[in-house]
Amino acid sequence: MTRTRATAIGFVAVLLWALLALLTVGSAPVPPLLLNALCFTVGGALGLIWVMATGNLSQLRSVGWRVYAFGTLGLFGYHALYFSALRLAPAAEAGLIAYLWPLLIVLFSGLLPGERLRRGHLVGAGLAFSGAALIITGGGGPGFQTQFLPGYGLAMLCALTWSGYSVLSRRLGNAPTSSVAIFCLATAAASWALHFMVEETVWPRDTLGWASTLALGLGPVGLAFYVWDIGVKRGDIQLLGTSSYAAPLLSTLVLVISGIAAPSWVLAISALLITGGALLAARASFAA
């Protein structure tokens, strides 16, 4: 598989994550950890069926427990921190901090063997981050408040967790993508356990709720992790990290089309910033 093709496959995850907000709204009023458990159960089962259908089940036995522990901590840790951050701080500000992970991926990837951080990557990441910030904050708002610092801290840990997981996954390049199925199933098991400890069980209340939950498990919290694994291990991780800023833009467009959000000048300016940043990063990567 070529580096360009692997990068394109990885970007499919960004497209799927663009549906995360819409499907999460549709899955209400399921509490976060229960939703996490349901989605990762579906995503893990999907992956296990794929592994068995392709005859790669034997690959799973060759993967060490440290790899499984790493993957499970990455998936479970990110989502646990994200949901907790949004409970302790306003969603817009906490979401902005959590969405530092694409920028951190671009920066941290420069430390990997064989990778070089170019000026175009930095400028492109900065422009793209400005666009993402504009979308998440709506171009204004009351700003950060000290009483929400615990939530902001968890959101920062959230960004560090996913960026660290994505970059360090390159060091596990010999671990097959099929191992992601075990990551998902282990994350589901941990989420089920934690849900019964701290949450009240509230199931989806109608067909739309169940359909949204199933779609989450199949796409943004399922297939997305498998294609992302291919991208970060075999593709251009710097370009992939910067292009991930398309997720908040595409997510907003989906919400606008569905009638949940209204179009505005913020969306137009953000589109220019994100597109320009991605083009600069792409130019830097292809010039290497």
Rank of each mutant, 00 (worst) to 15 (best):
L35I: 04
A181Q: 01
G110V: 01
T252K: 00
W203M: 15
R170V: 01
R118G: 03
G55I: 10
R66I: 06
E199D: 13
G77L: 14
P220D: 08
A175L: 03
P248Q: 07
L273C: 07
Y245R: 09
G126M: 06
A45M: 13
L157P: 02
A45F: 08
S251W: 02
Y68R: 08
L81G: 04
T54V: 14
A92T: 05
L35Q: 05
V221C: 14
R171E: 06
G10Y: 04
A28Q: 08
L194W: 06
S163R: 01
A282P: 02
R205V: 12
L149V: 15
V106W: 02
F11G: 07
G219C: 11
I49A: 15
V25N: 13
C158S: 09
W228P: 04
S243F: 06
F144E: 12
Q59C: 00
N36K: 02
A13Q: 09
L240F: 08
N56I: 01
Q147P: 00
I269T: 13
W210M: 13
V202Y: 03
L134H: 00
L73F: 04
T275N: 09
A98V: 04
L223T: 01
G26H: 06
P204I: 11
A211P: 01
L60M: 13
A287C: 07
N36G: 14
G114V: 10
T252Q: 08
S244I: 01
L239G: 00
L103G: 05
F83L: 10
A6V: 11
R3S: 11
R119A: 12
L60G: 09
L249M: 07
P248L: 10
Q147A: 15
L46Q: 08
G231T: 06
S169M: 11
A247Q: 09
G151N: 12
I97L: 14
R170C: 00
R5I: 15
L216M: 15
I269W: 11
C39L: 08
S27G: 06
L279M: 09
I135N: 01
A224F: 05
L112A: 06
Y152H: 10
S84Y: 05
S264F: 07
L103P: 03
G44N: 02
V256I: 13
I274L: 07
G114T: 12
V221S: 12
L60T: 04
G259Q: 07
V256F: 07
V232D: 04
A85I: 06
L250P: 00
L20N: 09
A287G: 10
P31R: 08
L103W: 03
L185E: 09
W50D: 13
S244C: 10
L57M: 13
L103T: 08
L168V: 11
V25G: 12
G173A: 11
G55N: 05
G139H: 12
N36Q: 13
G164W: 02
A89Q: 01
L255G: 08
